[in-house]
Design a binder for these strands. Structure first.
Lengths: 212, 212
DNA sequence: ATCGCTTGGTGATCTTGTCACTGAAACAGC
DNA sequence: GCTGTTTCAGTGACAAGATCACCAAGCGAT
């Protein structure tokens, strides 16, 4: 799942590292559905969330782009001329650089390791989205919720997300998440606070997340 | 959406056309989740459906592979070492050829048009799956059903699919499809027969499919 | 004809999504 | 401190969809 810049040859790496680094605050909207891709985006620090939004206003997290990864929506746009379908939001303060279209094409032409990197990114995202589809289509909300809580819990078992943010992460509605969380709490699996969930019984939650 | 072999240079095209052509009957299972990719698959005739199956046994059509297209699940396997997550079934009698792994890698290395073709395929599939996710996550069953009926209806407005097949196509359950179809019938939008749906009011159905 | 299989219909029940509110906590400015 | 304002969370009522457990037709083979 993690697509690192590892495996790139020194020359390619150097040309990527020469790029100017931009920064953006948490919460910045980096691109919206319909935008054209400006260039190949590489994330150095922080996390970008790419969301799909339905007409009703409900949204779902397609995938996250973290350090060393690239936003393949952009690549998709560069290679196929298709515009974004998702919305990109900085979830933390981020640092990134943009490789202009022409330079990107040249690298694709000349660097086999770079091509491999881009392909791996693609493959990883396709897998992410497919797995997400599987979850949304076939898995109960409670189980999806348990999974996200496990994934997002820090060392101390805390998850700093609102019910709304959790709902977006699993593609459900806030009210549903509230009720499911209350159900988990009543079983002693989590503790609840405003904007904060504490995982109280990690093995129990993991068991739920695995299904059965 | 359609990823044709158009745009390939003559040399690449020739080397693809030298491959031996295999055939398979409708209904043949071509690959299952967990299988390793044998090589790069190119479809000459017919249609392959790639399905994702949940534990419950319910399944959903990820995408179809038609004439001139390639099954990117395979490519994904070749490039990233990931196994299939979907199940491939011949929906019609098919003719296809397989480009062995080594030859595939060589083409990727040496032919820019071939690389572009593979990238376009990837981009198309990622788009397909994303759109499907959007449908499943945010769109009503009735609307998804209407859309599929429009897409699959022949010149004469007939759709030769069972309720179960329709349910798989939209990622729902057979009973739900039966009930929704009955609702459409009562509104005069379709006529029903065993294994056959006739679109009676195409504009009306299309209107439904567009949403609102 | 009749056995077996596929296809489709139906009621009951549970889960999930949606709508319309309410209340509680956090926060900014005075 | 208070006072609005905003964000977050809880709740009841109801609609949509999934699941389960059946049953009944249609169809093909022998």
């Amino acid at each position: 799942m993690d697509v690192a810049t590892d495996g790139l040859d020194a020359a390619t790496k150097a040309s990527l590292e020469r790029l100017a680094v931009s920064r953006a605050d948490a919460g910045t909207v980096l691109f919206r559905p319909g935008d054209d891709a400006a260039g190949f985006v590489l994330v150095h620090e922080g996390r970008i969330g790419v969301y799909l939004t339905g007409r009703s206003g409900r949204d779902i997290l397609l995938y996250s782009v973290e350090r060393g990864q690239t936003c393949i929506q952009t690549t998709l746009g560069l290679l196929g001329g298709e515009a974004y379908t998702g919305e990109g939001i900085a979830e933390t303060p981020i640092a990134f650089s943009v490789l202009p279209r022409g330079d990107f094409m040249a690298l694709m032409e000349n660097s086999a390791p770079f091509r491999a990197f881009v392909f791996r990114s693609f493959a990883g995202r396709l897998n992410d989205v497919t797995r997400l589809l599987e979850q949304v289509a076939f898995v109960r909300v409670e189980q999806r919720l348990a999974r996200v809580l496990i994934e997002r819990a820090g060392e101390d078992g805390t998850v700093h997300l609102t019910h709304q943010a959790l709902a977006s992460a699993i593609g459900s509605a806030r009210e549903v998440v509230s009720r499911r969380l209350e159900a988990l709490r009543s079983r002693g699996l989590v503790e609840l606070d405003r904007g904060l969930i504490r995982v109280a019984d990690r093995p129990g939650l993991r068991h739920l997340a695995e299904g059965e």
